[in-house]
Design a protein around this nucleic acid. Structure first.
Lengths: 336, 336
DNA sequence: TTGAAAGCGCTAACAA
DNA sequence: TTGTTAGCGCTTTCAA
């Protein structure tokens, strides 16, 4: 049905090689020839057949995006940012959502990305050394959002600084019994985000002379339900915290609900700080740590496409700034 | 670097055609031959080169997914559902996010999906007749979530029934001054969802003998900020509503915030009902209309792949049920 | 600046 | 059940 390169070549009275060069904008085509070819191609409604081009050139003009979730706020934003850049530069975006361990294993075992993409972006997903090695074996530029890894172009925030600002805010409000809802269970153990944020929580408490008490920590799994469970557990502990720092806004939302369900109020009885500045943090009046999210997607995509097009080594990790957004969910500790 | 079909064929002492057949599981290969070939392919770490396969066969094993947003709850869930089915059946998912009119125009003008996909799924996006025609021109199975259209395999909910149940709930609670925050501006005019929900709002009011008053309607654009603006406008109107039905939970969240900012309370002063059962509706205690979201993605993907693999005509529209979820944001009207 | 020709790695008739 | 033989539609040397 559709016209092919040779149709255009015949009509223009030139070889397919010239048409190919003209349409790709290569320099070695006379301007008149190019104009004529472009006009004829348009007349014939010519469209390149990607698979033929890919087979002949070896370039796929496609970037694989691997995410542990596509249906959470943070990931939707990052994917948005990545897609924006890819589309504007004429690249396809191949999406892989690896929610559970099974699909993750299957993915890294079969590695469906082989010979299929020019670059891969991994979004805030814990990567075992073996998995990182499998990706390296693809022999294409690799990008990573939300962590550092050897051989990857990394875009991230300073989790230690961000989490530190949240905990210091609570300390400055006079809180001493500050609980922590962390993200990662054992599955995410190798990932830096939960570790860094947890470390900042502990270090800031130690530095303030408050000391870190393990019984004030609970795991929330980065979900609303997980945050709710974690907060319930904390509330039934021996020490009732006067404030809680959650490693994500979703967990903070869950924590707020648990607090209310137990008959307490936010912030009168317990202050809550989250992390992300989720689009609904404002609605829920949640104090949180803001991070640029879509921008991280933009950046990693840009870096990857530059590497694809110009080669070279991955640049040093880009660390973007965070900021504390104070809203109504935190207030000075009240005397008991 | 990687082994090719002919490497496997040489090693196995058969032709490339036999290797191709064996690896694809075609019936006409002796079991012993197949086993040997599969073993050798594994030994050689053979991976198919998709572009070669696509060029030779004409099948891309790829589905294009076109969405107006990837970073909103509803769309994230649908994409999740689509991806799940595609990955399980070995298809690639090519994602296109067309947030603004410019990118939409460019997309339909250049139609980058040509010769690139075996099917296309359009997610809750208004389609002009011209745009629908461009897609039809791709000559591949077409799917649509959230609306009906000739020539598309459609998966949707009954928006009229869903919205009707929300408004009837308010009427049953004794409300008479029921406002409506609608989704669509002029840009989405051709799309059925906002129209159907708006129609249900009006019809139910009429049927209840309450009558429909245009001054109780405002446009909220399906966003939190839009819902907030719409609610503010409604609150500064002549009649203060005692209840409001928002066409999406996000707009309902915005409305709740506007209500609180104006010094009123939900539900004491104003009841609020949303639509979607967003993951945070529960956290915000929002009464809403629940719809199966990821399931719609699952279904449209399944239907499309069946059409790709077996041909045939798109099946009739699948209409999934909705349900009213009553939470704390609605209560009987209080005497003024 | 252009053309001829040889693939890229696979699939699909057709034959055997 | 297997092999032979053409391509699929482009890109890319190499030569002119």
């Amino acid at each position: 049905m559709g016209a092919s390169l040779s149709d255009v070549a015949n009509r223009a009275g030139v070889s397919t090689a010239t048409v190919s060069r003209a349409l790709r904008g290569l320099p070695s085509v006379a301007e008149g020839t190019r104009l004529r070819i472009v006009r004829i191609a348009r007349e014939l409604d010519y469209t390149i057949t990607p698979s033929a081009s890919r087979l002949a050139s070896g370039r796929t003009h496609t970037v694989g995006v691997v995410a542990p979730y596509v249906n959470r706020w943070f990931f939707g934003e990052v994917i948005f940012g990545v897609e924006e850049v890819l589309r504007s530069r004429g690249f396809d975006l191949l999406l892989y959502n690896l929610a559970d361990a099974t699909s993750r294993d299957r993915f890294f075992d079969a590695m469906p990305l082989r010979r299929r993409v020019d670059a891969v972006a991994v979004l805030s997903m814990p990567l075992s050394p073996e998995q990182a090695a499998v990706l390296s074996g693809l022999d294409v530029p690799l990008g990573l959002v939300g962590a550092d890894a050897e051989g990857f172009a990394c875009v991230r925030i300073d989790d230690v600084a961000g989490a530190g600002s949240a905990v210091r805010h609570l300390i400055m409000l006079g809180h001493r019994d500050i609980a922590h809802i962390s993200g990662g269970g054992p599955a995410t153990h190798s990932f830096t985000t939960p570790r860094d944020r947890a470390r900042a929580y502990r270090d800031v408490l130690e530095d303030a002379g408050i000391g870190y008490r393990p019984e004030l920590e609970a795991v929330g799994d980065y979900t609303v339900a997980g945050g709710e469970r974690a907060m319930s557990a904390l509330l039934s502990g021996a020490t009732r915290p006067s404030a809680v720092f959650a490693q994500s806004d979703e967990m903070a939302f869950g924590a707020m609900r648990a607090i209310r369900h137990s008959g307490l109020r936010v912030p009168e009885d317990i202050s809550v700080v989250g992390f992300d500045n989720h689009e609904l943090a404002d609605v829920l009046d949640l104090t949180t740590v803001e991070q640029p999210v879509a921008e991280q997607g933009n950046l990693v995509a840009q870096i990857l496409l530059d590497l694809v097009e110009s080669g070279g080594e991955p640049p040093p990790t880009m660390t973007l700034p965070t900021g504390l957004v104070v809203r109504g969910s935190t207030r000075p500790v009240s005397p008991r």
